[in-house]
Structure formats: structure tokens, C-alpha cells
Simulated scan of single mutants.
Amino acid sequence: MTGENAGSLEFVDRRTVGQILLGFGVAAVVLYLLVDFVGTAEVQARLTGSEWGWLAVGCLSTALCLIAWGKAWQIVLSVAGINERFSRLVVTYFAATFANYVTPLGQAGGEPFIAYVLSRDTDASYQDSLASVVTADLLNLFPFVTFAGVGFAALLYQAQLPAAIEPLAGGLVVLSVGVPVVAAVGWRFRAPLKRGLLGLAAPVARRTRLLTLDGLRERLHETEAAFQRIARDRRALVKALSFSYVGWVFFALPLYAAAMAVGESIPLLLVFFIVPASTLAGLVPSPGGSGAVEATLGLLVYTLTPIDPVGATAIAILYRVASYVFALVVGGGAALYVIKRN
């Protein structure tokens, strides 16, 4: 192990792990307060009386979701000239998902970290890895907008949009429209943005040997070239987009399975609104939005359906077990395997 890698691991041990543990601790307190407010004994009774077969269905759906998104990842990487066996790459994707899910603020922009994991585990450069990861995430916005829009339209048609969730609905619209617009504007004016970034980095480069303007300029040029290579193959991007849609379907279905597990039912159109809306809570600075996502899910289910608060809380917890905890367990195993094979 080189001194550089050792220093990196030491940083992870002392700071990142501490932040992760603190984030999980805060999330546990929030979840405890939520369950205590609703009724601990009642929620526990609903959970223990659940049909665990439906929870298994939810876990399987999460696995299929990650596999589909991993396939979309492989297609985008192949456009960038990085050809990896899917059996190998899907393990890397699970490991990267684990890293993203345990890192505070990972849900609010974990692409650089995921690109680092990918570049270390494949022959891809960091610039190609980052371009492919960002492209895959942008492709995932299309099904996000589609499913959220269909569910939102269904709610408006049925006049079932309570005032309590109007801010969430507004945030969903802003996010689904704003991110593609920002990405498009940023790409259109990439030259001025590059000059601005180099200008901001100049004072830092004058004070340290760790950063040089020539090196940063070269990295930005390589990243731009990687995006251009990916953008030229539109057929491959459409194919990747189809897998993104499939992944989003399997990403949302665990909520339906969680409701069935406690003897309740949530219409699929509503599922496809609630799940994207709850992802806004994933922007909070806790691992995977833990605590905030459960509270938001419980509120949305209670507000938009006839399900009582106890049932809504149980559904939110079971959904997170199937979609988040399961992904952590499987992704953690994949991360250990990736470390071992490297």
C-alpha cells in the first residue's frame, strides 16, 4: 500500500466514518421520535404481524432495480470506450451504491465519489467514469419526471392534493425541471464556466503544490471530451434510458409491497408519485436521507390514502427496509468483494 493510499484510508477512518455514524445516530433519533409519536406498541404490532413474503418481494424488486441501473451504466460506459463484463460491473455498481448510501449528502451529489469507486475498480479514467456516472444520473431523471408527473396529474384530476403536501409537490416540479435546465445551460456555456473555475482555483494553486492550473485545465478538457463521446451515440443512450425506466419501476414497487405486507393497498399511480416525492427528503445531510425519508413517506401515505398513522408508519419502515437496508447489506457485501479483488 502506498503512503498516499494509507493517508486516504486514515482520513476515511477518522472523519468520514465519524460523519456516517453521526448521521445514522441522528436518523435513529428521528425515527424513534416518529414511532414514539404515532405509538410504539401499535407500530411494533403492525410490523410483527406483517406478511414477510411481501417484504421479500420488495427486496427482490430493489435488487432488480439496481441490476437495471447497472445495465444502463454499462451501456453508457461502453459508449465512452470502457468495456467491462456485466457480471463484474454490476458488483461494482452495488458497491458504489453502498458507498453513496452511507455517505452523508451522498444523495445530494455523490457522483464524484461513485466515479472514484468505478475508476479504481475498472480500466476507466476518473474523467470517463465521472462523465458516465453523471450521464446515467441525468438519464434517470427522465423516468423520475415521467412517473412523478403521471402521479401528480392523477392527484390533480381526483382533486386529492392536500395543502400539507403542496410544498413537496412544488419541490418535485422544481427539481424535475430545474436539474435538466441547469445541466443544459451549464453545457451550453461550458467555456465561460471553465474559465470561471480556473479563475477561482488560481489563488489556491499559487499557495499549494497539490493543485496546478495546467493539471486542472487538462482534467476539465478530458472530462468535456468524455461527455462529447457519450453524447454522440444517441441509440445507445436511448437503450440506456429504457433500462433507467425499468429500474425506476422496480425502485417504486417496494412501496406497494410494503403496503400489502401490512394488509393495506396503495394504487400504483399514487406509488409513482409518493416515491419520487419522498426522494426530496434524501437531500438532507444524513446517510441515504435516513430519518427524513421515513418521516416523509409516512406523512405522504397518511395524507394521500385512507391508511391510519400507525399503518402509514409501518409501511414507511418496511419500504425502507426493502429499498435501503437491503441495498446496504447487499452493497456492503459487494464493497468488501471489490476491495478484496483489488
Rank of each mutant, 00 (worst) to 15 (best):
L130H: 01
N140Y: 14
A115T: 07
V117T: 06
Q107P: 06
T103G: 07
L130V: 07
T122M: 06
A108I: 10
F142D: 01
A136G: 05
A136R: 08
I114H: 06
Y101Q: 15
G106S: 09
P112E: 13
S129W: 11
T122H: 05
N100H: 11
L138R: 06
D137L: 13
Q127S: 15
D123M: 01
Q127Y: 03
A115E: 09
F94N: 02
V145H: 04
A115D: 10
Y101N: 15
A131N: 08
R120P: 02
Y116A: 09
V91N: 01
L138I: 11
F142Y: 11
Q107L: 13
V90T: 14
N100K: 10
V90P: 00
V145T: 12
A108L: 12
T92Q: 05
L130Q: 05
T135E: 04
S129H: 04
A115N: 08
N100V: 10
G106H: 10
L138F: 15
D128Y: 03
Y93F: 10
V133A: 10
S125I: 05
V102H: 04
T122F: 02
D137T: 14
V90N: 07
L105V: 14
F113P: 00
V145P: 00
L130N: 03
V117F: 12
D128G: 03
V90Q: 09
D128T: 09
T97E: 10
T97Q: 15
S119W: 06
D121A: 13
T97R: 01
T97A: 14
V91Y: 00
P112C: 13
A124M: 03
V145K: 05
F98G: 05
Y126L: 14
Q127W: 01
